[in-house]
Computed example of a mutant assay.
Amino acid sequence: MNGKLVAGFIVLTALVAGVAIYYLQEYAYYRTVEPASAEAVIRLTDLGGRVEPMLAERFEGVDADSSPLRFRGCFHTPMTLAMLSETYVAYEEPTPLIGPKWFSCFDAKALGADLEMGAALAFLSEKDIHPGVDRVVAVYPDGRAFAWHQPNETLEK
Rank of each mutant, 00 (worst) to 15 (best):
E86H: 15
A7P: 03
L5C: 07
A17H: 06
V19Q: 03
F59E: 02
E86I: 14
T13V: 14
N152P: 07
G118A: 08
P141T: 07
P96V: 03
F106P: 00
V6Q: 03
Q150R: 02
S67C: 06
V136N: 04
G61C: 07
M54N: 03
A120S: 11
L15R: 02
D63W: 12
G143I: 01
R50C: 13
K127V: 15
E86S: 15
L55A: 15
A7K: 10
L44G: 05
R135F: 09
P68M: 00
A38T: 13
F59K: 02
A147T: 08
T154V: 13
G8R: 06
K127P: 06
L24I: 11
L81Q: 12
E153S: 12
S104W: 09
V62N: 01
D46H: 01
K4S: 12
P100S: 06
E92Y: 13
V16S: 07
T95Q: 13
R72G: 02
P35H: 10
A138M: 08
Y140P: 01
A36E: 12
Y22T: 11
S104I: 07
G99P: 00
L47W: 07
A138D: 03
G118Y: 01
F9I: 14
E116K: 15
V136E: 02
R70T: 15
R43Q: 14
G143V: 04
T45H: 03
H76D: 14
M54Y: 06
V41P: 00
V51D: 04
C105W: 03
T154C: 10
P78A: 09
A28V: 01
A14N: 06
A36F: 05
E60G: 09
T95W: 08
D114F: 02
L69D: 02
P131M: 07
H76L: 15
A20Q: 04
V139L: 06
G48Y: 04
W102M: 02
V16W: 06
H130I: 10
I42D: 05
M54R: 04
R43D: 07
H130T: 14
E26Y: 03
P68L: 04
M83E: 15
I21M: 05
V51Y: 00
A119V: 10
P131S: 09
A119H: 13
L55F: 13
G61R: 00
M79A: 15
E34L: 12
G118S: 08
G112M: 00
P141I: 05
R31F: 12
A20E: 01
T77V: 12
A108W: 00
E93F: 14
G18I: 07
D63Y: 11
S85R: 13
L155S: 13
K109R: 14
Y27M: 07
H149I: 07
R50Q: 14
D134I: 04
A56V: 07
M54H: 03
N152Y: 02
H149Q: 05
F103H: 04
L84D: 09
V136C: 07
S104F: 10
A122T: 12
